[in-house]
């Protein structure tokens, strides 16, 4: 039995206890899946769970829990469960109202990575055949080695078959078969450059930003979207101009507000229509938080996030080093 079948079986068992279930269904578009919201047993058959399920459905849980009275079921990959854990640890979610149905994961493909590899060509079709991805673009079929095109996070994932928290767990017999990679290799490349070069790099990236806020709205932890200072008339704290400087500034606000909260699901980068490498920024801030506060977001419900508590003395912050 595949993990998908087992998942459906499980959901069939519990669907009557739920007000609503958020899961994945197939999409007409190659390489994509659809988030779906189902209430009825007959819709369970449309659910899917496969290597295309890159979306982090935890994005929906905060708003859902505000809206519904009973329990919301949510299909999660083990890494997505971290986002829910983080929300719980911040007291933003009601544990009782959230039913975490976690399915073991054998890695998900990153369609942007495939697209970038193909020089940005539009993907028209996709097939997975014995370890190879057959990707169709307008001119030809491209045969790619599947193992190279998993989402970045899959290369250093340690929890794919042991979620830190769940209500229902569906085991996945399929091993990812991914060669683990060094998480910080890309940061090191950037950091080896001079300040000017780094600045130029980001200016080049943010010159594309259109301030569509897809990065903000897709984030499971940014629950502040409707009140975000960047598109309010009052208070008028950030200009609404769409240009490099403001795009960068907005992103700095994002990064700062997510420090110690971001679980590095990579959704912001995936959502960005202009392919700005936002995950690098998030990774850096998580790295700093880990170094300073010995804290990794989304691991334990009971551990207080560093910016939600106050300590007289911080072990890793030496005052003399602050200047």
């Amino acid at each position: 039995m595949t993990v998908e079948d087992k998942l459906k079986e499980k959901i069939n068992e519990i669907i009557d206890d739920l007000d609503l279930l958020v899961g994945y269904s197939a999409s007409e578009l190659p390489l994509k899946v659809n988030p779906v919201f189902i209430k009825n047993r007959e819709d369970v058959k449309n659910l899917v769970f496969n290597k295309l399920c890159i979306n982090n459905l935890a994005t929906y849980i905060y708003n859902l829990s505000k809206k519904i009275k009973g329990t919301a079921g949510i299909v999660l990959k083990p890494c997505d469960a971290s986002s829910v854990i983080q929300l719980l640890s911040e007291g933003l979610l009601d544990r009782e109202k959230t039913r975490m149905i976690v399915a073991g994961c054998s890695g998900v493909f990153d369609y942007k990575k495939i697209q970038k590899h193909l020089g940005g060509q539009k993907i028209i079709s996709l097939e997975l055949e014995n370890g190879n991805l057959e990707v169709g673009t307008i001119n030809k079929k491209n045969t790619l080695k599947a193992a190279d095109f998993y989402a970045d996070k899959c290369y250093w994932c340690q929890i794919y078959n042991k979620p830190p928290l769940y209500d229902d767990f569906i085991e996945n017999d399929q091993e990812p078969g991914i060669q683990p990679a060094d998480k910080y290799a890309d940061l090191e490349i950037i950091e080896s450059k001079s300040i000017e070069e780094i600045m130029n790099y980001w200016d080049g990236q943010f010159s594309r930003c259109i301030r569509c806020y897809a990065c903000r709205n897709v984030c499971p932890l940014e629950i502040c979207q409707d009140r975000c200072i960047t598109n309010l008339d009052e208070p008028y704290w950030q200009s609404q101009r769409i240009n490099t400087q403001e795009g960068k500034f907005f992103q700095m606000i994002r990064v700062m507000h997510l420090a110690g909260r971001c679980t590095e699901c990579g959704e912001c980068e995936r959502a960005c229509p202009k392919n700005i490498p936002l995950a690098k920024l998030m990774k850096k801030s998580a790295q700093i938080v880990e170094r300073l506060f010995d804290y990794k977001a989304g691991q334990e419900i009971d551990k207080k996030p560093p910016f939600l508590t106050f300590k007289d003395v911080e072990q890793n912050i030496k005052e003399e080093n602050l200047s």
Binding site: N34, P35, V36, F37, T59, Y60, I210, R211, C212, Y213, A214, R216, N217, V218, Q225, D233, Y236, S239, Q240, A271, P273
Partner: peptide, 28 residues
């Protein structure tokens, strides 16, 4: 309600659209 349930309410679709024309006026 059914159609919109998964929408995250961002601006990507309007900004790429060739026919969307809404704008804001602001002073600085």
């Amino acid at each position: 309600d059914v159609i919109t349930s998964k929408c995250i309410s961002c601006g990507a679709c309007t900004y790429v659209c060739p026919t969307c024309f809404c704008f804001n006026l602001r002073d600085e």
